Amino acid sequence: MSLVGAIFCVALLNVSEIARYGFDSMQATTATQAAAEAALTTCDVAHVPATTNCAGLNNAVDAALHSTSLGTQIALKAPLSEAYYCLDNSGALALVSSAASAPPADCSAVTNATSVPTLYLVVSTSFTYAPMFGGMTVVGRLPQTMTHTAWMRMK
């Protein structure tokens, strides 16, 4: 009876810890996406790039980032960045120019001359998960630092 009770207890600890890990990961993803969306709703797309032409950008991103249950435990991993991207032949976004320079006329740099470059804002965040039960569960073997990235098309 003791052996079965101990196995059941360890299994219950693992289930609760894995559920909490998954929930925190989902909250980190949601916070990152909310921060990217806040940039678009705060900054006028007629005055892009937003990183240089939108005074309220950083405050709006910070407020949205900390709007989930994670609060101030989640932080920007890197400064907000903006650049012009084009779809390459494989359908992936490829960097063609920084937002500080003039936008390219077309996407010939990635052999797609018929397309027009698009400005994207990139938000990268980091959250460090703290297990409740330390080394007693399998979550201790999972990555403790969660990083998420959200992209927002600005123009």
Rank of each mutant, 00 (worst) to 15 (best):
H47S: 13
H47Y: 13
V48R: 13
V48N: 12
P49V: 12
A50N: 04
A50H: 05
T52A: 13
T52D: 11
N53Q: 11
C54Q: 11
C54M: 05
A55G: 12
L57C: 10
L57F: 10
N58S: 10
N59R: 08
N59F: 04
A60F: 02
A60N: 07
V61Q: 01
D62Q: 13
D62K: 08
D62L: 11
A64K: 00
T68H: 08
S69P: 02
S69F: 11
L70V: 09
G71Y: 06
T72P: 10
T72V: 08
T72Q: 15
Q73W: 01
I74H: 01
I74G: 02
A75H: 14
A75L: 15
L76V: 05
K77Q: 14
A78I: 08
A78M: 14
P79S: 14
P79I: 09
L80D: 10
L80V: 03
S81Q: 12
S81P: 06
S81K: 15
E82P: 02
E82Q: 10
Y85G: 09
Y85E: 05
Y85Q: 09
C86G: 11
C86R: 02
L87S: 10
L87N: 12
D88N: 14
D88E: 06
D88G: 04
D88V: 09
N89S: 09
S90A: 14
S90W: 06
G91N: 04
G91Y: 06
A92H: 13
A94V: 02
A94R: 12
L95H: 10
V96A: 00
S98T: 07
S98V: 04
S98Q: 05
A99D: 03
A99Y: 00
A102Q: 14
A102V: 15
P103R: 08
P103D: 06
P104F: 04
P104N: 09
A105D: 10
A105I: 07
D106C: 08
D106I: 07
D106F: 11
